[in-house]
Design a binder for these strands. Structure first.
Ligand SMILES: [Mn+2]
Ligand SMILES: [Mn+2]
Ligand SMILES: [Mn+2]
Ligand SMILES: [Mn+2]
Lengths: 145, 145
DNA sequence: TTTGAAACATAGCCTTGGCTATGTGGCATG
DNA sequence: CATGCCACATAGCCAAGGCTATGTTTCAAA
């Protein structure tokens, strides 16, 4: 039966996975947002990050600190926040995934605004394999174009 | 056109929604689990809850405290945890949603074990409207039976 | 060149959700 | 009926992610 059981994947494992996903979720969203701000306005200031995230300025500052600690960003006071190569790669990956999830939801009949709302949370729990399934579904639904 | 804009649903609103969803996620999983334990073993002991959630016993105790504070559960020391009517209703709703999400993912080509893993996180971010879309997709794919 | 507002940093507080270490109550068994 | 073990409670710690209040820099305009 080719499928090696290896580990049973317990109920507890699932929760551990969800917890881990949650811990990186914020970093992903901040990275994506910083990338967006650079694309749209040429720079990413802490104040703009805070505004877009809907948090207070010190909250954004702390998040940026964590991004720096994780090697995803750098920043110089009064001079904006910059993604490292790793950070940029993460942001791009996250942005593609975000768009795929939204498109997929819309494709199965979810209203666009609702899809956008739900995707913001769902995206962080979608594995590569599930994302592939979404992609396949989308290209299957678009045979000609 | 009938669609009243009312509010623009800003980027920040999306994050606020995701944060809120996350704050209730654990309560939902604990409620569902307590319901499962009652169904399977006739009672839900803190030790069993901890084991299934994959956390330390005091962590489960604290979660139960929060469930009680929110009016979702009661407990008597050395006598197990019980869901209130509200808690039972929540658990049932959450369980149905969990199953719908898993079935839906499988239906679009995600391997079962992966679907189960991803669903544990995704489920908490699926709105009623998206859940309806999933249900419609599932019944559409099953015309006869 | 002064100066004042905006941008940012810092301090201190809270809740949640983890953990370990350790105290205590219940109950079965000897 | 004594007692020891297991289940649970409690205390105390930590990091993350929020907040407000308040200091400090920068920069442009007067
Ligand atoms: Mn997101
Ligand atoms: Mn996103
Ligand atoms: Mn879950
Ligand atoms: Mn679940």
């Amino acid at each position: 039966m080719s499928t090696t059981p290896s580990s049973p994947v317990t109920h507890a494992d699932r929760f551990a996975r969800a917890r881990e996903a949650q811990s990186v979720a914020l970093l992903e969203d901040y990275a994506e947002l910083i990338g967006d701000l650079h694309a749209e306005m040429g720079e990413a200031r802490v104040a703009d990050i805070a505004a877009r995230m809907g948090v207070a300025q010190p909250t954004a500052t702390k998040a940026v600190s964590r991004l720096k600690r994780e090697g995803l960003a750098t920043s110089r006071p009064y001079r904006g926040v910059f993604l490292t190569d790793t950070g940029t790669a993460l942001a791009d990956r996250v942005r593609r995934r975000h768009r795929t999830v939204v498109s997929f939801l819309v494709a199965v009949g979810v209203p666009e605004d609702v899809a956008e709302l739900d995707a913001e949370g769902i995206e962080h729990h979608v594995s590569d394999q599930t994302l592939s399934a979404f992609d396949r579904f989308l290209s299957a639904g678009t045979p000609e174009d």
